[in-house]
Nucleic acid binder design. Sequence first.
DNA 1: AAAACTTGGACAACATCTTGACAAGATTGG
DNA 2: CCAATCTTGTCAAGATGTTGTCCAAGTTTT
Lengths: 344, 344
Amino acid sequence: MVEAALDFPIYSIKAVAHMAGITEPTLRAWEKRYSILTPQRTESGHRRYTRRDIYRVIWLKRRLQEGMSISQASTLLETQSAESLLDSMEQELKASSNGTSVKTNGRRLNSNSNTTLIESPKANEIRSIPVLINELLEYLLDFNEMGADQLLAEAMGLYSPEAVCIDIIRPVLVEVGERWLRNEVTIATEHFASNICRTRLNAMIDSLPLVKDGPLVLTACGPSEFHELGIVTTTLFLRRHGRRVIYLGQNVPALDFEKDLRRLKPSLVAFSASRTETALVLAHEILPVIEQVRTNNLPSLIFAYAGRAFIEEPSLHDLFSGQVYFGDDSRQTVALVDQLLPRN
Amino acid sequence: MVEAALDFPIYSIKAVAHMAGITEPTLRAWEKRYSILTPQRTESGHRRYTRRDIYRVIWLKRRLQEGMSISQASTLLETQSAESLLDSMEQELKASSNGTSVKTNGRRLNSNSNTTLIESPKANEIRSIPVLINELLEYLLDFNEMGADQLLAEAMGLYSPEAVCIDIIRPVLVEVGERWLRNEVTIATEHFASNICRTRLNAMIDSLPLVKDGPLVLTACGPSEFHELGIVTTTLFLRRHGRRVIYLGQNVPALDFEKDLRRLKPSLVAFSASRTETALVLAHEILPVIEQVRTNNLPSLIFAYAGRAFIEEPSLHDLFSGQVYFGDDSRQTVALVDQLLPRN
DNA sequence: AAAACTTGGACAACATCTTGACAAGATTGG
DNA sequence: CCAATCTTGTCAAGATGTTGTCCAAGTTTT
């Protein structure tokens, strides 16, 4: 799983130095002087860092670039990572109340700011999730690939992959999509943004060991449904928890789907609908196929549905009586599947 | 049959060294020092590797190229795939139960080759591109993610990224697309295939250092053009050669494009058209925008076009007189851009 | 007989470790 | 405002660990 990969000590100091752009002596000095890095050691005493360590170093480097001192940044990182377990709401509260407690920042910042600091004078603010969202949005609207990438790497170091997907990437892409609907940004912007985020999600999926056994789950967007972010996130989460999942894509026609069902013989299929119309199509075209396959081939096939449409229009649930609702939040889904499906 | 060949110990150390690009002493050293490779032995003690072994070696080599040390990579390989345990157990079982037959492996091979080995008796030859294409196609049509991934990893080890993109991935995806048009496979198959390949391409792009300076290149699909593989490949190649490129996506409307042009101020824009109709749309909707922006804002803006349409219907070139044709093959494109654009 | 393979040992090049020191800049006390 | 002190990145030296390559002597394959 990602946790394993994220907290698995394999990187040498050279690799970390290269990836984070901090020299090796400095890394050792930081480790000695502050308590931010405690890499494991091999039998012979060589340092072995985790991916999370690398993200932490990158995070620190960014603070330095913003004019913060390493000692401030390191204490901030400690408090920050302690809080990252909590809800974003709570973090925001603490962030505002903590603002004044970090001392002697003002002078350093002002004297240094002319070199690299472009932004607000309050760079010492704790970067809560709302702050990260705003910054990511800014980068994406600006076609700034490097900035967006660094920020996402930083976010992955501070928060769980679930939190990054649901609390950062999702709202940002929704916002971009809405701005596109309001004609405030071009389709290229929207495409660029979702491309960057998809690449990150894919990279996360890529780092997972592939599951070969166990019951198969199919995920898909129904006919004329093109909004795939939610279901892709769900796919990612299920894979993270060791499920065998194949994502069938956007706009899957009922006829095709029937073929795939017979061929792949899944134990569970999950469809997402973002708008009322596509939810209706789901009920009228996909559901009959399910029923039919159930009577003919796979009597225990489970059908699950989810998506924005059902949050905005709760009456749609009536169309899917007897089926499983996957919940308003991808986080719940994993537990739900564990109840529904045996582990192998 | 592919599966069987995957675990069949036939490759000599020389063959493995050649295919994976690792010297023989190194292979032996790895086997001795780490527990990653345990090839079977012939009666006389010569090593006989399986294709899976080769995949593992190639996987290791990639980690090394990424800056990881062999010890790190090998521990990662061990923990990453719980399968490796299964494999070794299986192999051990086979070894002990088939004791007698394994002993005589060296001689038996020739008599056995007709069953599993389709090719020449010399098993140490590099698997040719047509063979790789067929196998990749098989995996993809079979929704076999692991097989496809391993095969692509192997291909990347054997051939240049350019060759993998143009000579392997492209024909395979074209074939899948055509089968979908002929209704022989479902859209999910097509989506699955292109998703796997896109993920690999993205991973390659991801591993490149981001370029910040130099003239900007925009790549895009024109209005109602959805066939993005070629232009994405071109984007990849240009990035590989240190160009700053932003891919704007499929189906970019002329109005949007004008906004993006004014905003991003590129030095060159490249559009792709797969069918005659989209080439026409390109000429009638995008080209006027280019001309207009040229007279108003960016007099030196270069317009380039490419795509299948121009190969199948050469008369289409007449519509783009005075513009740059990007060539029939993405490989040429890089050199062409070097002629057209200064390096910074 | 030539080519290929085996093992085990040896070795050079490189990475990394620890410790101690130093210099430039920021901060602070007088 | 100057000098002392603190902070922080960098370096050097000597020891140890890691890793690709090579050699020698013997065996197997062609």
